[in-house]
Design a protein around this nucleic acid. Structure first.
Length: 259
DNA sequence: ATGCCGAAGTTACTTCGA
């Protein structure tokens, strides 16, 4: 089966491209982030016509996550256990479901904004709650993965200019340690192929010709347990989807599993 | 060519993203 994760940067603004991509790539399960719409405003009918059920979690502005599936959606859970709030709000950043033989979380980890901003400790607290929430599934026999936009470059190779970003969010030791702590629950980073260039970046800013110049970051990850990683036949970043008018600033990460 | 930012709500401009 084929499982993908994609920060789509508005599911409604991107609907035509999403449907075209689903038709071309034919994933069985897709974890989406940054829906930028309320759950009730997600395009469930258009997706159903394309053969996909959707479980969505969103409040209408930023954030918002969903899981699409052609193989059923069950055991849906919204929000992490003890998920931290920001500015008094429990933000829609995490949703889980069982789809056929696999269980997945689709997560949109807080950006962090700046190490001096309250958003930064919020990001670290979110990752701590994520670890606790997924520990049991990570240790289980069923293929399981946490997929999404982690807003962390795991290593200095995962961004185009580590020198320029030194000391900023996405690359700090505390963020990388928090990510490693999530992985210590029994998950490992499924490293995708790059379809072009030396490294599989997943995000390129819209500004400054960053995509043509390949000034990117690898921040969209799939952290999988042993049952999942043992089934991986292929994994790649579909950078073709980053091209052209109306693209998201993130590309889908696609995983093929022998399941 | 891959091409100089884009989306949404608060409908003119602010906020956010990484």
């Amino acid at each position: 089966m084929r499982v993908a994760t994609w920060n789509i940067n508005s599911i409604n603004a991107r609907l035509a491209r999403l449907l075209a991509w689903l038709d071309a790539a034919r994933p069985d399960v897709v974890c989406l982030q940054e829906l930028k719409c309320a759950a009730a405003d997600a395009p469930a009918e258009a997706l159903a016509a394309a053969g996909y059920e959707i479980a969505a979690h969103g409040d209408g502005r930023w954030n918002g996550v969903a899981i699409l599936s052609k193989v059923g959606i069950g055991e849906v859970v919204r929000d992490l256990d003890d998920q931290p709030v920001f500015d008094g709000a429990l933000e829609p950043r995490a949703i889980a479901a069982t789809c056929g033989p696999v269980r997945v979380w689709s997560v949109y980890v807080p950006n962090g904004r700046d190490v001096a901003d309250l958003h930064y400790p919020y990001k670290l607290a979110f990752l701590e709650a994520l670890k606790t929430t997924v520990a049991a599934d990570a240790a289980a026999e069923r293929p399981f993965a946490v997929l999404g936009d982690f807003n962390i470059c795991p290593t200095d190779d995962d961004l185009w200019d580590a020198q320029a970003w030194s000391g900023t969010t996405h690359v700090t030791e505390a963020e990388r340690a928090a990510l490693a702590d999530v992985e210590s629950a029994g998950l490992s980073d499924v490293f995708p192929r790059a379809l072009k260039h030396a490294w599989p970046f997943t995000f390129w800013d819209y500004r400054n010709l960053d995509f043509p110049k390949n000034r990117g970051m690898r921040i969209d990850l799939a952290l999988a347990n042993a049952a999942w990683t043992g089934a991986v036949a292929d994994a790649y970043v579909d950078r073709e989807e980053r091209k052209g008018k109306g693209a998201s600033d993130h590309a889908p990460v696609v995983l093929d599993l022998d399941l």
